[in-house]
């Protein structure tokens, strides 16, 4: 798996006249972990939804390795190798963990519906391979023992893991994590940090949208900080921590809370 470079150039989004994203530009370097931080309402999730095609951007350009992504609907964005998790975990609650993760293999299935209906042998093989791959993914994420459990019955941290497993099952070249640490306790956050390093080591580009500055500092190579739909600082974790603009806009308020 080869990570791609994501370039976002002057994208903007308004909702009924209210500016959600004014003008944001940044680069998430290939095979690196880039952090996108900012206070609530600073436009992080809107940016993510524009990258994944859920919202069309009003202006600007998004490219993957230089090839334009702007304007593609979400399923085509996914087909380009972009996978994501959701801030408010979105699993299919009444299905097993394995079934949820196997949904991620959707794009990997090459056999037609007619082949499925005719039960050609290749179809069963494809299914077995997909299932095998998902089971080993679950093992890697140390939730293999939960494969048959209904997703709705999982603990919070496990559900976050299943979401990441589902995203990884798509064989992504760019993984977008939307506030994966929300609601996690300290030890769960440690495990998450390990997991993100592991994903980076496998060569996938990661864009981490996060509130928790400690976690972001630990795992990212580069941080972009947003406020009021604009980018206010950019740099290494150390630079961001010392940037007066960031401290004023974000850290000060966050640490006081």
């Amino acid at each position: 798996m080869i990570g791609v470079q994501l370039e976002v150039w002057k994208i903007a989004k308004r909702f009924q006249g209210i500016v959600a994203v004014d003008s944001i530009s940044f680069v998430a370097a290939a095979r690196q972990v880039t952090g996108l931080i900012g206070p609530n309402g600073s436009g992080k999730t809107t940016t993510m939804n524009m990258i994944t095609g859920l919202y069309p951007a009003d202006a600007g350009r998004i490219t993957l390795d230089g090839v334009p992504l702007t304007g593609s609907p979400p399923h085509q964005v996914a087909a380009r190798g972009v996978a994501r998790t959701f801030q408010n975990i979105r699993l299919l609650a009444d299905q097993s963990v394995l079934a949820n993760v196997t949904l991620g293999t959707h794009l990997g299935h090459r056999r037609s519906i007619l082949a499925v209906l005719a039960r050609l042998p290749g179809v069963a093989r494809e299914e077995r391979e997909a299932e095998g791959r998902c089971r080993s993914l679950l093992d890697e994420l140390r939730i293999g023992h939960l494969a048959e459990v209904l997703a709705g019955n999982l603990s919070y941290g496990d559900r976050r893991r299943v979401e990441i497993a589902r995203a990884l099952a798509t064989r992504p070249r760019l993984l977008l994590l939307d506030e994966p640490a929300a609601g996690m306790n300290h030890s769960e956050k440690e495990q998450l940090a390990d997991l993100i390093r592991q994903i980076k080591a496998s060569g996938i580009t990661v864009l981490l949208i996060e509130h928790d500055i400690d976690l972001v500092s630990k795992v990212t190579d580069h941080i972009v900080c947003l406020n009021f739909g604009r980018e206010i600082a950019e740099g290494t974790p150390a630079e961001i921590r010392n940037s007066p603009a960031v401290i004023e806009a974000y850290l000060g308020r966050d640490e006081a809370a």
Binding site: T52, P74, L103, G104, H106, T170
Partner: peptide, 18 residues
């Protein structure tokens, strides 16, 4: 599987390439 996802949450389905 894709249809089941479409039924329950079409945003998830789209994001998985459906």
């Amino acid at each position: 599987r894709a249809i089941a996802a479409v039924k329950q949450d079409d945003v998830v389905a789209q994001s998985m390439g459906v």
